[in-house]
Design a protein around this nucleic acid. Structure first.
Length: 570
RNA sequence: CGGAGCGUAGCGUAGCCCGGUAUCGCGCCAGUUUUGGGAACUGGAGGCCGCAGGUUCGAAUCCUGCCGUUCCGACCA
């Protein structure tokens, strides 16, 4: 491709609206342009990268027997009502106004609707189906350019099996394929166990790229044997010790004490574990809301994802009016004793199991109780793992410590089970002639996000540093002086020869530009190799090759240019 | 959903407090000279100052509403 024909609008100045590194570089290098919030156009350079990611995915999906489909991006809302997801997704789903259709945020329903009339015998299995296609999600707050957009390209795959063993095998194959894909994309990634969220289903893992721009937090042990999304991460910690004293609960005045820190200071303690923190959540249900009081140690945070795992996905924090109604007090003075609403369910973190001498809110503004014994004083209390792990805590096996890092989720694999098949009635006959729901798995990769994640991990002050298979071109051929006939002619020869050897070359044949402009553009768009043809070296019969990643410059005889490029490119 | 900021030429911005038809840089066009790390000079083109309404002799500037967009937070209990 000649730069005189290639649309490459590079930008010298920093875009005002782009904060995240990959976002800035994708705009500056002419890969993408924003159309509106969370919606981006892929420009030719960006598209080349996205296509390379897609092709790697395609090859790896095909290698495990995947069938490529191309499904519609719009589908009837009725299909989503049947699985309950029209409601579950809520505003995250775009709805079409003048027809009863929605823009698909994912495609379990549509794929299942194809499976239903066509996979009807156990002999029809196993199947792996996938597509690479646009998804639409009405994100409340898009951010970081293509890292979280309202329209994006996703590879979504589905395994369809007649047996649970089949699902396990499909899932393992997919996990291997994902490792291949992200390795080939040149990413430094971690596989973590994950929360299943709105998808439903059991086992699930995420492929995470550690990066400052990440929106997820992952806990990884120093020995690398444990890796988990913080939403489901667990650690080893001693329970709050039971003292077995006979002290009775006692109310005391705590004027203007709202936070645990203030309370700790007020009662003069450094150990916040006995200052039980109370939070009230609402489990939104059709038949009426259910309220849950959650107790954790004062220095811990409630992990809402874990809470959702116990109650379903409709958990939210209670509003202040609801708090007043339930407790009789405002946030800051809520506790397990003396609640106005007696029907509220009380659950506490496992660390607090059967603990005593706790301090917690008295459900009366500016008052707390001391000497609370959960075993004695709180009837019907249940204990669950509800806390969020913290940096430096021991792993469950006590052999290592946890580190917490921000990361970008580039891929996610789930064992869905029979949720969608049951909801949509997708059944098959087994060898005994019995009807069973199809057992499914669901597997996604964000294409643009994968490319952006690479940039997050590979850049410097001058721009992007592409490496390996997803570089938009292998080499940029820079003619420093198109006005010089010898240089011009030689560049044309090089261009032709490299193309004939299937080296992907971008030829900077722009006339009348100063060398600095060309060098800076080349560094910005970050093509791995720069083949620089200028008068200085040509006089001595030489050309220069610059390696973008380490800045190394190699001078070679002009007749060796192509073979050297081939060698460096392999 | 809560909070904050911003919308002026293709891009980045000044002006706004304190009203008088818009500043600068980059880029763009023409010419001359340059040509190995974002050239110099000369001349030029380009603006419903986000939209609508209001106040005023007069609005980029003041007031009201709307739209767009970015960032932070979504906690503490």
């Amino acid at each position: 491709m000649r730069l005189t024909q290639f649309f490459l609008p590079t930008v010298k100045e920093e875009p005002a609206d782009a904060i995240v590194v990959s976002h800035r570089l994708m705009i500056r290098s002419g890969m993408i342009r924003q159309l509106t919030s969370g919606v981006y156009s892929a420009l030719p350079l960006g598209l080349r990268v996205f296509r390379k990611v897609e092709n790697i995915i395609r090859e790896e999906m095909n290698a495990i027997g995947g069938n490529e489909f191309y499904l519609p991006a719009i589908s009837p809302s009725e299909l989503w009502s049947e699985t309950g997801r029209l409601e579950d997704y809520g505003d995250l789903m775009f709805r079409i106004k003048n027809r009863d259709l929605v823009l698909c945020p994912t495609h379990e329903e549509v794929f299942t609707s194809i499976a239903k009339p066509n996979l009807i015998s156990y002999k029809d299995f196993p199947q792996v189906w996938y597509q690479i296609q646009s998804k639409f999600r009405n994100e409340e707050r898009p951010r970081g350019g293509v890292l979280r957009g309202r329209q994006f390209t996703m590879k979504d795959a589905y395994s369809l099996d007649a047996t649970w063993e089949g699902l396990d095998k499909a899932y393992d194959n997919m996990a291997k394929a994902y490792r291949n894909i992200f390795t080939r994309c040149g990413l430094d990634f971690v596989v973590v166990s994950a929360h299943s969220g709105a998808m439903g289903g059991s086992a699930s893992e995420e492929f995470m790229v550690p990066a400052a721009a990440g929106e997820d937090n992952i806990a990884v042990s120093e020995d690398k044997k444990y890796a988990s999304n913080i939403e489901v991460a667990v650690s080893f910690k001693n329970k709050v010790e039971r003292k077995n004293s006979d002290l009775k609960p006692e109310e005391f005045h705590t004027p203007d004490i709202k936070t645990i820190d203030e309370l700790a200071e007020f009662v003069k303690t450094n150990d916040k574990s006995r200052l039980a923190k109370s939070r009230v959540f609402v489990n939104v249900k059709k038949e009426g809301n259910e309220f849950v009081l959650v107790l954790v140690c004062g220095d811990d945070e409630v992990n809402e994802s874990k809470l959702q795992n116990y109650f379903g996905i409709n958990i939210r924090a209670a509003h202040s009016e609801e708090l007043a109604e339930i407790s009789g007090a405002d946030a800051g003075s809520i506790g397990p004793i003396g609640l106005k609403n007696k029907k509220i369910k009380i659950i506490a973190d496992l660390l607090l199991e059967d603990s005593d001498e706790l301090i917690s809110g008295a459900n009366k503004n500016d008052y707390h109780y001391r000497n609370i014994d959960l075993k004695r004083d709180v009837q019907g209390i249940e204990y669950k793992d509800l806390r969020t792990v913290r940096e430096g805590e021991d792993t469950i096996d006590k052999k290592s410590k946890l580190k917490i890092t921000k990361a970008i989720e580039v891929g996610h694999i789930f064992k869905l089970g029979t949720k969608y098949a049951e909801a949509l009635g997708a059944k098959f006959l087994d060898a005994e002639g019995k009807e069973n729901p199809i057992i499914m798995g669901s597997y996604g990769i964000g294409v643009e996000r994968t490319a952006a994640s690479f940039i997050e991990q590979s850049n410097d002050e001058k721009g992007i540093i592409w490496k390996g298979e997803i570089a938009p071109f292998d080499v940029i051929l820079i003619s420093l002086n198109q006005g010089n006939e010898e240089i011009k002619t030689f560049c044309e020869e090089l261009y032709k020869e490299l193309n004939s050897k299937n080296v992907e070359v971008l030829f900077d044949d722009r006339p009348d530009l100063r060398p600095g402009v060309k060098f800076n553009d080349a560094d910005l768009i970050g093509i791995p190799l720069q083949l620089i043809i200028g008068e200085k070296n040509m006089k001595a019969g030489n050309v220069e090759i610059k390696i973008r990643s380490n800045g190394e410059r190699i001078i070679v005889k002009k007749e060796d240019a192509v073979s050297k490029i081939m060698e460096l490119n392999s």
